Amino acid sequence: MRTLRILILTLLVGSSAMAQTTSTFTATVNGKPFEAKGQRLKLPLPGTMRYLAIAGMNVNPDVQLWLRFFYLNDLKPGTYKILDESDRSVRETFNKNNVADGSNPVYALLDYTEETKGMGHAFQDGESREGTVTITKVTDTSIEGTFSGTLRGQTYKKRVMATLGGFGLRQNLEDKAITAAGGGMFVKGDPHDHSNTKKGDKTDDIVITNGTFNVVWGTDDKKKQ
């Protein structure tokens, strides 16, 4: 009986620990609910600027919602602006000559991409434009918070020769396999980097509301960063 109690207690503790480390990424996208497992991404970014990139990713069709934080010193709880990637204030904010001693500039990018035709032949994207993100808790191996924003609508279409010749088909399959395995699109530094595509028409804004994230990663993953 004692052995059985110990076994049950062990299972309960294990289940509780697993529940506490479940990563989630949710939002409402143009009125439609979005929910996916939260992931920390490893991006090949040059330079000395520090960053943390997280995302929710679903596969077949591919739907991804990214949040990327850029900062000079520490990432702390607080409310920060979501900006356009080409916003001039970004460069001004992170110009070290303009950073006062003790200041801690932080900005974020919010991006969305949705596969609208099979095997990545077309995408409906939302490019970061404006909004806010609130970090409620952050540690060396986890981050929690909420967000909302308005994104610039943009379509991407497969190039004609790539479609006729089947170029990029293997890459699309590999990307899907990596995403499904929980590895994230770590070989790419941008959610809008769609292989063998070109920009199509502009579309209506994409509105993101009720966004929440609770992403946990391991200490081994942190050491590899």
Score class of each variant (00 low, 15 high):
Arg2Ala: 12
Thr3Pro: 00
Thr3Gly: 05
Ile8Lys: 15
Leu11Cys: 15
Leu12Arg: 14
Gly14Pro: 03
Ser15Arg: 05
Gln20Ala: 10
Thr21Pro: 02
Thr22Gly: 02
Ser23Asp: 03
Thr26Asp: 08
Val29Ser: 01
Val29Trp: 01
Val29Asn: 01
Gly31Val: 00
Lys32Ile: 12
Gln39Phe: 08
Gln39Leu: 15
Arg40Ser: 13
Lys42Ile: 08
Pro44Tyr: 08
Pro44His: 06
Leu45Lys: 15
Pro46Gln: 12
Gly47Arg: 05
Arg50Ala: 05
Arg50Lys: 12
Tyr51Val: 04
Leu52Trp: 05
Ile54Gly: 13
Ile54Lys: 14
Met57Arg: 07
Asn58His: 07
Val63Leu: 03
Val63Cys: 06
Trp66Val: 03
Asn73Glu: 11
Asn73Gln: 14
Asp74His: 12
Asp74Phe: 04
Leu75Tyr: 06
Thr79Met: 02
Ile82Gln: 06
Leu83Val: 11
Asp84Gln: 05
Ser86Trp: 11
Ser86Glu: 13
Val90Tyr: 10
Glu92Phe: 09
Phe94Gly: 05
Asn95Cys: 00
Asn97Trp: 07
Asp101Trp: 13
Asp101Glu: 14
Ser103Pro: 10
Asn104Asp: 11
Pro105Phe: 04
Tyr107Ile: 09
Ala108Cys: 14
Asp111Gly: 09
Asp111Leu: 07
Tyr112Lys: 09
Thr113Tyr: 02
Glu114Cys: 07
Glu115Cys: 04
Lys117Leu: 11
Gly120Ser: 03
His121Arg: 15
Ala122Val: 02
Ala122Phe: 00
Ala122Pro: 03
Phe123Gln: 03
Phe123Ser: 05
Asp125Thr: 11
Gly126Thr: 06
Glu127Pro: 04
Ser128Phe: 15
Arg129Gln: 08
Thr132Pro: 01
Thr132Trp: 03
Thr132His: 08
Val133Ile: 07
Ile135Leu: 03
Lys137Glu: 08
Val138Trp: 00
Val138Leu: 01
Asp140Glu: 15
Thr141Pro: 09
Thr141Asn: 13
Ile143Cys: 01
Ile143Met: 07
Glu144Asp: 11
Glu144Arg: 03
Thr146Leu: 04
Thr146Lys: 13
Thr146Ser: 12
Thr150Pro: 13
Arg152Gly: 05
Thr155Val: 03
Lys157Val: 13
Arg159Lys: 15
Met161Ala: 14
Thr163Ala: 13
Leu164Cys: 07
Leu164Trp: 06
Gly165Pro: 05
Leu169Gln: 02
Arg170Asn: 13
Gln171Leu: 04
Asp175Lys: 11
Lys176Leu: 11
Ala177Cys: 00
Thr179Asn: 07
Ala181Tyr: 00
Ala181Phe: 01
Gly182Asp: 04
Gly183Ser: 00
Gly183Lys: 02
Met185Arg: 05
Val187Tyr: 03
Lys188Gln: 10
Pro191Tyr: 00
His194Gln: 08
Ser195Gly: 06
Thr197Ser: 06
Lys199Met: 06
Gly200Asp: 08
Gly200Trp: 02
Asp201Cys: 01
Thr203Asn: 10
Asp204Glu: 11
Asp204Ala: 12
Val207Gln: 09
Gly211Phe: 02
Gly211Lys: 13
Thr212Leu: 09
Phe213Gly: 12
Phe213Cys: 04
Phe213Pro: 07
Phe213Thr: 09
Asn214Cys: 08
Val215Arg: 07
Val215Glu: 04
Gly218Trp: 12
Thr219Asn: 14
Thr219Val: 14
Thr219Gly: 15
Asp221Asn: 13
Lys222Ile: 14
Gln225Thr: 15
Gln225Glu: 14
